[in-house]
Design a binder for these strands. Sequence first.
DNA 1: ATAGGGTTAG
Length: 642
Amino acid sequence: MIRKVTVFSLRPVRLKTNRFSSLPTSPTSEPASQFPPNSILKTMCINGQLNEALLEMAIQGEGVRFEGYDSLLNECVNRRALREGQRVHAHMIKTRYLPPVYLRTRLIVLYTKCDCLGDARHVLDEMHERNVVSWTAMISAYSQRGHTLEALGLFVQMLRSGTPPNEFTFATILTCCSGACGFDRGRQVHSLIIKSNFESHIFVGSSLLDMYAKADRIHEARSVFERLPERDVVSCTAIIAGYAQLGLDEEALELFCHLQREGMKSNYVTYASVLTALSGLAALDQGRQVHNRVLRSDLSSYVVLQNSLIDMYSKCGSLSYARKVFDGMPERTVISWNAMLVGYGKHGIGREVIELYELMRKDKQVKPDSVTFMAVLSGCSHGGLVTEGLNIFNEMITDQDGIEPEIEHYGCVVDLLGRAGEVEKALTFIEQMPFKPTAAIWGSLLGACRVHANVLVGEYVAHRLFEIEPHNAGNYVILSNLYASAGRWADVTYIRQLMTEKSVAKEPGRSWINLGQTIHTFHASDRSHPRREEIFEKVRELSAKIKEAGYVPDLSCVLHDVDEEQKEKILLGHSEKLALAFGLIGIPHGLPIRVVKNLRICVDCHNFAKFLSKAYRREVSLRDSNRFHHILGGICSCGDYW
DNA sequence: ATAGGGTTAG
């Protein structure tokens, strides 16, 4: 206690009367000029002489006061100098200095910025009095490192303690309410925000709209955005990214163009987000435009943006451009490698997947992660490299990289075994794996059974699948294909009845084709296109021409209870056929016809495209939900396995 | 002093 008096004796005379009554609580309570020794500390810190200042601190001992500590901690935070900061903290303890709330909060900030959350929390826990900044700094530290539950728990404590949150607290806590599971909490926070009159704050507002978008409530997100009294890059990017992340690519693109016309200035996050939308749309022309603008801006060195460009080019069918971007990067993250690997995989170029993977292993700057293995395994599967894929999975099992295989990796192995025709082995593998098989796993095996005409296993697998997804029409279609390939027509009929009983719904199939800047979208039997007559005429012409070459419509792809003539008509109305016909009309000879489909391509359309490529000597690039099909001269890069 | 949006897979 005597020491304390010594310290306080340095207080300004006018405060002497109440010098024991309270600790200093604000930086202004001790004018700098009154404390020459602390001014020296301050000057040293301002001049960046932290080591000298620490020496001076040791010399001054108990003489160090608020201003000195403030300067020291400030410099330590700026430099993220943990050891030095710890010495300052230790000095306070040694000299029995009782830091005011302000300095304790500085300590919390120091520790959180240096990744020492435990130490920061310890300081917070020892505080008898806390302010909104102490709470928020700690909450933000948890939230930024993904410790969502701790952040939320602390937020609740904060509310109970009676400290009202401010705009900083709200902006940070909303990021902990993202996703479907956090939505209820997010809505509660929203009502608190409204009560506190913060809804139109630009930081709170963008965090809020992001919360809604990530909970799949895009309309609520948009309405928050529209109510913002002002807009900036972040809020604009948040709403664009919101659309893009939900797969509402056209809306994302439209909004991006609209906001640009209104004067939005894009940064690298904005471009990365719009590139995601363009990847989804396979809009190569617009993607190139964005790339050009990036090159003309000062943003081209952002790795995140380069990664988006790799992904955009590869999903727009231009692997060589993707590789050019990749090769031109001065620094690459694991995501750069993964994006490139995924690209080769989706295009079915297994050899490049393996080559790039080996190159990656030689690069000491990056380590493969779980996505890398997904990319490599599925790349081997799509590229027909069965043995290589199985070897890599075995490497995972022996735990050379410390990456535990997840259910998706097991799914890739099912795919690999299925492709190799080892359908029974794949079934045993599923039964022995440490996960409960998902619909995706069974679906993959059912596909293998279809290709290898294994009715016995296929029936079993289909019924497991129907238990999980009784209303997914695609599964019934594949089983029907399988029965048809075995000539079991009675069972094809039975499947049709089964579907009627279970009132199976089909997710609407959609195909589109980009002509310059315009996206032409088709649904099944779509008559909305202005050139519909021409398109239908082309489909009929096409069908007649390839029938001469041996094309036989696969009626098992149609599960409606109608006669055969009707079935063929339905088949000819499939959206990918309309898009292909339109491409044949609109895209000059010599250029590939690039069609995109939102679902997996059906067996009949795949066959149709192969015949088309031969009869019309056209290169067809068809992207379905799973991979690319490069079709030339009647042969598809998928090897008829997809 | 403390705060918001983003890239690969499924």
